[in-house]
């Protein structure tokens, strides 16, 4: 039995109670692995991780972080629980400098702050070079790096990422996804929503496919990649080429 970092069971959620977007959805994320959620537009993928992050109210079901129940958390307490959330867009503070963005998320680090800031800059050298610039001036790929750096700053055990490769050039997308993969080497659990199915499956360990607010299929990423039916039905009609 695998060690689950995060598990969602029977999730019913939506912005208004009368119109649930998710209807009885489940998700398991193994510790230190990349779990990817894919599916057609409007399937409820983003809603699922927003519900986990406390940004969309959950009307039924539970979210467990290890053995701790974190259903319907106050979003500002998630960081302290060890869960970071990286939104798809507007995921950095444009009017603050890069350094200020990081100092902001490190504000409770106390005496450690300088050392942890240095460590983050060491991990993301392009950000260090531009630390005095306004974050709004960064390129799309660098924005994603900053957003991930901000998430990492709180030393999370789980990072929820909403389409980190959206809007990026193929090369930048590959870099961002590669970095997500690399983070697991430090034991971090990654839960990823992606449209970029082919690339996402390559870096993922496990994959959940959602459609119409419900689970369809899930399984090891490598298996799903080679499953022709899955490719035809859920991955936009195209067969996904094996890696």
């Amino acid at each position: 039995m695998t060690d689950l970092a995060l598990e969602a069971r029977g999730i019913v959620a939506g912005y208004v109670p009368e119109l649930p977007i998710l209807r009885d959805v489940h998700l398991q994320a193994a510790r230190g692995r990349v779990t990817v959620i894919i599916g057609p537009n409007g399937a409820g993928k983003s809603t699922l991780i927003k519900a986990i992050a406390g940004l969309v109210p959950v009307s039924a079901g539970t979210v467990m972080l290890g053995d701790q129940d974190i259903t319907n958390p106050r979003p500002d307490t998630m960081g302290a629980a060890g869960v970071a959330y990286v939104p798809q867009t507007d995921n950095i503070f444009r009017t603050l400098t890069i350094r200020q963005n990081l100092e902001l998320v490190l504000r409770n680090a106390g005496a450690d702050r300088a050392a942890r800031l240095d460590a983050l800059f060491g991990q993301f050298p392009p950000l260090a070079a531009k630390q005095k610039e306004k974050a709004g001036a960064l390129s799309g790929g660098q924005r994603q790096f900053l957003a991930v750096a901000m998430a990492l700053a709180i030393r999370p055990s789980v990072i929820l990422m909403d389409e980190p490769s959206a809007g990026l050039a193929p090369k930048a997308a590959q870099e961002v996804l590669g970095m997500a993969r690399a983070l697991t080497e430090d034991g971090v659990t990654i839960i990823l929503v992606e449209q970029n199915v082919r690339q996402a499956l390559r870096i993922a360990d496990h994959c959940f496919i959602l459609a119409d607010g419900q689970n369809q299929v899930d399984g090891p990423a490598a298996d799903l990649m080679n499953d022709p039916i899955v490719g035809q039905i859920y991955l936009g009609g195209k067969r996904v080429a094996p890696a």
Partner: peptide, 13 residues
């Protein structure tokens, strides 16, 4: 600038 992101960054609105 961005109340939602501020919240997920641990700031209590």
């Amino acid at each position: 600038e961005n109340p939602t992101l501020a919240q997920v960054s641990g700031i209590s609105l």
